[in-house]
């Protein structure tokens, strides 16, 4: 057990280091991330927000947070897809550490580094643009944790989607649809609080909101009660996603050892 844990920790460290060594990749990510943040904050500046309960400053911070969470995992499903297509998964299956766990650990390392880079960069950017920080400094660890949980949840679902390669060959269309659902039901740009009440209520219950809206909503309210609320929703959905990944990975592996690649 502790062996597996040490091995997974090593995978995570390696993922972090490999992401760090790819300077161009990180730079490209920062540039790509800057765009929607810039665009959305310009849109918020131009939006007649009076009476909506959301200020332009808060909205800018909100978008900075949601985009950082979306950009942090990148396209993990493609890594899984490639492992299956190239047969690299076979080599991984002959190891004493489970492939899915190893892949998740490695991607977690990379994801957390990208989140740290994008979050710090975006935070500084938003701070300069708005001249304010929407939560107390003491809430910062909780905000980071919630953002990390959101990115991790997105990562787990992507790993499950990647395993679909075994059945459908190309998992990309499934991913794009899922991603757009996250955008809409998770409130990528428009916080759920600005949605029609019925849709906001549905959205809040979905894993999409646990990825984006719940953690990003801490820019409106980072009180201890709100933090507990956000983190508990996320833990719940992380557990559900873990079950989902285990089920899909298990079924995919069973099929692989029966049918080959």
């Amino acid at each position: 057990m502790s062996n597996t844990f040490h091995a997974l920790a090593a995978f995570a460290r390696l993922g972090w280091r490999e992401t760090a060594s790819d300077r161009f990749g990180l730079l490209a990510r920062v540039i790509l991330y800057s765009l929607p943040v810039l665009i959305y904050s310009a849109i918020w500046q131009a939006t007649p927000l009076a009476g909506s309960g959301v200020s332009a400053e808060e909205a800018t911070w909100y978008v900075m947070a949601t985009e950082a969470i979306i950009f942090a995992p990148g396209y993990v499903f493609r890594e899984v897809e490639e492992d299956i297509r190239t047969g690299a998964i076979e080599a991984a299956l002959t190891r004493p550490v489970d492939y899915a766990l190893a892949r998740i650990a490695e991607e977690t390392g990379g994801t957390l580094l990208r989140l740290a880079v994008l979050g710090t960069y975006g935070g500084v950017l938003a701070w300069f643009a708005t001249g304010m920080v929407p939560f107390a400094w003491s809430a910062l660890p909780a905000v980071w944790t919630a953002a990390g949980f959101g990115a991790l949840l997105a990562l787990l679902v992507q790993v499950a989607i990647g395993f679909l390669t075994v059945w459908v060959g190309n998992p990309a269309p499934a991913y794009w649809i899922w991603q757009k659902l996250v955008f809409v039901l998770g409130g990528l740009f428009l916080p759920l609080t600005l949605y029609p009440a019925w849709l906001a209520d549905i959205g809040r219950l979905t894993p999409c909101a646990a990825i984006l809206f719940h953690p990003a909503s801490l820019v409106f309210d980072a009180s201890p009660a709100a933090i507990v609320h956000v983190l508990s929703w996320q833990v719940l959905w992380l557990a559900a996603a873990a079950v989902l990944v285990a089920a899909v990975a298990g079924a995919a592996t069973r099929r692989l050892v029966r049918e080959g690649i």
Binding site: N3, H6, A10, L14, R17, E18, A91, R95, P96, V97
Partner: peptide, 23 residues
């Protein structure tokens, strides 16, 4: 035809990780 080494990292890093995998 398949690599178990991490493309961008020094070989030593990969070997250390593999040692970890096997405990």
């Amino acid at each position: 035809q398949r690599s178990q080494l991490w493309y961008r990292l020094p070989v030593r890093d990969s070997l250390r990780l593999i040692a970890r995998i096997y405990g």
